[in-house]
Simulated scan of single mutants.
Amino acid sequence: MSKSKILVVEDEKTIAEAVIAYLEKNEYEVIWADNGNLAVDYFRQNKPDMVLLDLMLPGYSGEEICKIIRSESRIPIIMMTAKSSEDHIVDGLNLGADDYITKPFSPRELVARVQSLFRRTLKNDSFKKNIIEFNANDLKIDLDAVEVFKKDERVSLTQSEYKLLTTMAKTPNRTYTRDELIQYAFNSDFDGFDRTIDSHIKNLRSKIETDSTNPIYIVTVRGVGYKFNGERR
């Protein structure tokens, strides 16, 4: 089983070294960024499972980093800071942080919070019945939030593209004719020809497929229509 990956964003070397030592002792893989700009780069390059985030940093501030991460991902964030007033804590949580620990803190306490947050996140995920994931989280559809993610990055779909995707993804390996897609995805709310479906499919592939010229999700069934492939998690 692969280790959970944690991005530690902390510009004070002694604090970072203590945190990293305790995390690695508890079998976590750790990436360290000592400034805000590097933190954003590492977040996007390494796709960590959690971020431990100092607020007062060179480059992007912790608050700015939190906003960037939340615009792109739902991974857990724990803020680590000397800003200990109630207003600061509330502001941090409102930005999207999941937990908040004030300096000075015990590395043991921080690790306990990390473990607790991972358990809570896993438990909550198990109850998200309206989230469907395919191919080891390569593609995720949040039916409640009406959002689609490709490798944890939000994909902007039109309403028509979203309707087509969810119609097919809910019944993988079923082949739909163009007329059936119009019927099931749009009902009577469709103004166009059946071949318009082809244009929507082409645009959808460009957004959710790794290689739209060789699609693995929305597959053409020649002479019939389309079907959705994908190993559901």
Results as ranks from 00 to 15, higher is better:
Gln45Val: 00
Val90Ser: 11
Leu55Arg: 02
Ile31Met: 06
Asn26Pro: 05
Lys128Cys: 07
Val111Lys: 00
Glu86Cys: 10
Asp54Val: 14
Ala136Trp: 06
Ile69Ala: 12
Phe105His: 02
Ile78Glu: 04
Asn35Asp: 15
Ser126Cys: 05
Ser116Thr: 14
Ser73Gln: 05
Pro48His: 04
Lys47Arg: 15
Ala112Tyr: 10
Tyr22Asn: 14
Phe105Thr: 03
Ser61His: 07
Pro107Gln: 01
Ser61Glu: 01
Asp138Asn: 11
Ser61Thr: 13
Thr121His: 03
Ile31Val: 10
Glu109Ser: 12
Lys47Ser: 15
Glu27Ala: 11
Pro48Tyr: 08
Asn137Tyr: 10
Arg120Tyr: 15
Leu38Gly: 01
Ser106Met: 12
Phe127Ile: 06
Asn130Ala: 09
Ser126Asp: 07
Arg113Ala: 15
Val146Ile: 09
Arg120Asn: 15
Gly36Gln: 02
Ile69His: 06
Tyr60Trp: 10
Ala136Thr: 11
Asn26Ala: 00
Leu95Thr: 07
Lys128Leu: 13
Asp87Ile: 14
Ile75Ala: 06
Ile141Arg: 02
Pro107Ala: 03
Lys103Asn: 08
Tyr42Ala: 15
Asn130Ile: 08
Glu72His: 13
Ala39Tyr: 04
Val111Ile: 09
Glu133Pro: 00
Glu133Met: 08
Glu133Ile: 06
Tyr28Met: 00
Ala112Gly: 15
Phe43Cys: 07
Arg74Asn: 11
Ser73Pro: 01
Leu93Asn: 08
Leu139Asn: 02
Glu29Lys: 11
Tyr22Thr: 13
Leu38Ile: 13
Thr121Arg: 00
Arg70Gly: 09
Ala136Phe: 12
Asp98Met: 13
Val51Arg: 06
Gly36Leu: 07
Lys140Gly: 03
Glu72Thr: 10
Ser61Asn: 05
Leu23Ser: 03
Glu27Thr: 02
Asp87Thr: 14
Asn35Leu: 07
Arg108Ala: 00
Ser71Arg: 08
Ser73Lys: 01
Leu95Gly: 10
Tyr100Asp: 02
Phe118Met: 08
Pro104Ser: 04
Tyr28Pro: 01
Ile31Lys: 05
Gly92Gln: 05
Asp98Thr: 06
Ser126Pro: 08
Leu139Ile: 07
Val30Glu: 03
Tyr22Pro: 02
Val40Leu: 15
Phe118Ile: 11
Asp87His: 12
Val114Ile: 08
Leu53His: 04
Asp91Val: 07
Ser71His: 04
Leu117Phe: 06
Ala145Met: 11
Cys66Ser: 09
Tyr22Cys: 14
Met50Phe: 13
Lys129Val: 05
Asp125Ile: 06
Leu117His: 03
Leu38Lys: 13
Glu24Val: 10
Asn130Pro: 09
Leu122Arg: 05
Leu110Val: 06
Leu122Tyr: 05
Met79Arg: 00
Phe105Tyr: 04
Tyr100Val: 09
Ile131Met: 04
Asp142Trp: 13
Arg74Cys: 05
Ile77Cys: 04
Val146Asp: 06
Leu38Met: 12
Glu64Asn: 07
Ser61Pro: 09
Glu64His: 03
Gly36Met: 06
Tyr60Ile: 02
Lys83Pro: 01
Ser85Val: 08
Ile31Pro: 03
Phe43Glu: 02
Thr121Leu: 00
Asp41Trp: 00
Met80Trp: 01
Met79Gly: 00
Leu93Gln: 09
Leu57Glu: 07
Tyr100Ala: 05
Glu24Cys: 05
Arg74Pro: 00
Gly96Trp: 11
Ile69Thr: 02
Gly62Ser: 09
Pro107Phe: 04
Asn46Tyr: 03
Glu27Asp: 10
Phe134Asp: 01
Ala82Val: 12
Val30Cys: 13
